[in-house]
Amino acid sequence: MNAFRLAGDMTHLLSVVVLLLKIHTIKSCAGISLKTQELYALVFAARYLDLFIHFISLYNTVMKLVFLASSFSIVWYMRRHKIVRRTYDKDHDTFRHHFLVLPCLALALLINERFTFREVMWAFSIYLEAVAILPQLVLLQRTRNIDNLTGQYVFFLGAYRVLYILNWIYRYFTEPHFVHWISWVAGIVQTLLYADFFYYYIMSWKNNVKLELPA
């Protein structure tokens, strides 16, 4: 495993820690899109189907379990926890996320590395992850006061994607058989979705003003 991949995984983990900190400690999910969190839970459930069948490394297994457990517990908190769920900004989180699922599934049936159940589910999870941030970005645009933890959460998620691209470039030159163009194309699309957010995030940080996305 190269440094970019490890750094990518760590920023991904950090984003989850930041979000859990907000939800678990501050008991608030203000500014967080439940739709995006539901999509992530579905992404991990579809992608990690091989968890108990195909062993890669202890690191891999532990990280998969962490992402599965954290994504489902975040959804549980936002839906069921009696204090947290009251802070959920339901009125602004209106993205029709169900309409993302079927096209991703159709695309996975058409474009996959192998036409098997697990490979189709893997491709589906890759496509769905690429667009899962959309409801969150829409909600951020509609949020007047984006708090620091929410901004940091999205920033770390985006950083994870950038680092994964660097990881693929590195692997491409160091591992002759490493060609996963499905994840590359989807990953680049996913990273581009953050471009706008990154611009405003860095500007707000540079000018030391509160983060706000133009509508």
């Binding site: 995984d9 991904h12 990280m63 992402f67 590395e113």
Partner: peptide
């Protein structure tokens, strides 16, 4: 194994 695709990333 030629029948499985290796996905070693998360």
């Amino acid at each position: 194994n030629a029948d499985t695709v290796e996905h070693d990333e998360l």
